[in-house]
Design a protein around this nucleic acid. Structure first.
Lengths: 133, 133
DNA sequence: CTGGGTGCAAAGTATTTGCATGAAC
DNA sequence: GTTCATGCAAATACTTTGCACCCAG
């Protein structure tokens, strides 16, 4: 499991049960959109409000321990920040998986073509996952 | 310039002045979000409505001659479909440029790690463009 | 002429904000 | 005790829809 309380404290966020639940759900499920998070939290806190979800997501995005992933043809999803990685998105089942791919060859070929200074490369593979094919 | 009328006809869309203007603006500017398109069209058609912009963007997306690009921290932008390419997004000036990068090494390294069947790879480089650095 | 596009207004969906109360520290 | 999070309701932002009228083919 993940030590949500320490994580929250490290980022100067008060430890509330709702926040702990958000972190734990994201840890368990990897990638979730706002509605999925809301549904999960409703089970634990029947009176939780969507506003709380939004406020917390935004707080966590600002503290940079959450990352927003924008995928074609679907709602943005959120994930806990971890090592830099890319995403596999299955167009059949919709599942998203992390994958660790070396991007140095990409950086090299960009360098040859342009003087753009890269901070960050965002790569999304779409296609069909092993289970669906 | 671009032959917007033929383009529209080829995709079975009636040629209207608003549509021609949308295609021409996208051709000129490369990438535009809904509001930018709306502002441009307002200059030519003071009574154009946002609904028309949305309806046409959606029609063009369906006919697959428009592409939606989702970028972190900004509104989605639209571009005319052309050869497959990647995007450079400057975090300083916000400008988006196309870049043609060979992705075969990415495909190879993915193949080694996973049985995911790739249809399509979406790559966004963020950083600082030549002019801004 | 006919079908489909346009513009307007209204509805729908998504997200943010203000505020009173209550919990975390 | 003070600060800040929560939940509610209202406000704002974004996008779609319905419909009467009009233009493209």
């Amino acid at each position: 499991m993940i030590d949500s309380s320490s994580l929250l404290k490290n980022y100067n966020l008060k430890v509330t049960p709702q926040r702990v639940a958000i972190v734990e759900e994201l840890y368990k499920n990897g990638h979730m959109n706002v509605d999925e998070l809301y549904e999960k939290l409703l089970k634990k806190f029947p009176s939780v409000s969507l506003a709380t979800i939004y406020k917390n997501i935004n707080a966590m995005l600002e503290k940079i321990f959450l990352n927003e992933v924008k995928i074609a043809d679907s709602k943005p999803v959120f994930e806990l920040i971890k090592e830099e990685h890319s995403h596999l998105v299955c167009s059949s089942c919709g599942k998203i998986k992390d994958i660790y791919i070396d991007d140095s060859s990409l950086r090299d070929s960009l360098k040859k073509k342009s003087n753009f200074e890269v901070d960050n490369i965002n790569i999304i593979f779409s296609g069909t996952c092993e289970e669906c094919s």
